[in-house]
Write a protein that binds this DNA or RNA. Structure first.
Lengths: 119, 119
DNA sequence: AATATGTTTCGTTATTTTACGAAATATAGA
DNA sequence: TCTATATTTCGTAAAATAACGAAACATATT
């Protein structure tokens, strides 16, 4: 119950729900996620930390980047993802995010970080 | 997205999650739910109000009682219930609640309300 | 009408959550 | 080693949430 509840809680925030859906497309580094959401980097970091401790996502270092991805070792994650897909598959916000992620690469989104420019 | 999110939020609290599962068994009046959970009546009322405004549950008056039930007109409720069943079907807390609800009737749980006696 | 029972609302407090900017940390490259 | 880039941690402020008891409200019974 406790584990399940913290997973649900981790999805009960709009920004985190969006992150979760974005990560379904592909693993993303922090600055890519930052390029899509409209929150401060420190706030984003907090959200990622919470989602990780809830077992929803995983991180991995790649040079100076930290790559976040869905934690597919956790069966609950897969099942929740399927559920979300069905419920939010047609959601405009989610679709817009997905489009943004598609047109994104680490090269073009990073290095513009601190300047507040979102590409 | 907004509707879905508020439904998820409405389930992101342990007491509300328990209420939702209890209502799957059968419609319950407030004092029956109160007999199972360990919170004040006014707190319970707040939770029910929130769940209702999220579209998860419905209420109906029956004499001096208010009977709450799952809002099955909302497709999302059914789908969420199915999901919860699979995830929490074996949860001890949920099973204990279920047992308690089975051995409950409005007659024996009410009228002991204000005295703090839980039967 | 008066009383008892079941439920909600109100006012308040304590806790948790979300947010931010500044500073700290880590890595890569000059 | 110095600098730029990417990310996290820290301190803090603002907002939302969960909790309670007292009072109010509804309905049924006497």
């Amino acid at each position: 119950m406790k584990d399940f509840l913290s997973a649900v809680k981790a999805l009960s925030d709009e920004n985190r729900m969006r992150i979760f859906c974005m990560l379904k497309q592909r693993p993303l580094c922090v600055c890519e996620i930052y390029a899509v959401l409209d929150i401060a980097l420190s706030t984003l970091s907090q959200h990622l930390k919470l989602m990780k401790s809830a077992g929803l996502i995983d991180d991995e270092k790649d040079g100076r980047w930290v790559i976040y991805s869905l934690n597919r070792k956790n069966g609950l994650v897969t099942r929740m993802m399927d559920f979300l897909d069905r419920e939010l598959g047609a959601d405009e916000r989610i679709l817009r995010d997905r489009k943004k992620v598609s047109g994104l690469s680490r090269d073009i989104c990073c290095s513009a970080l601190q300047k507040g420019k979102k590409r």
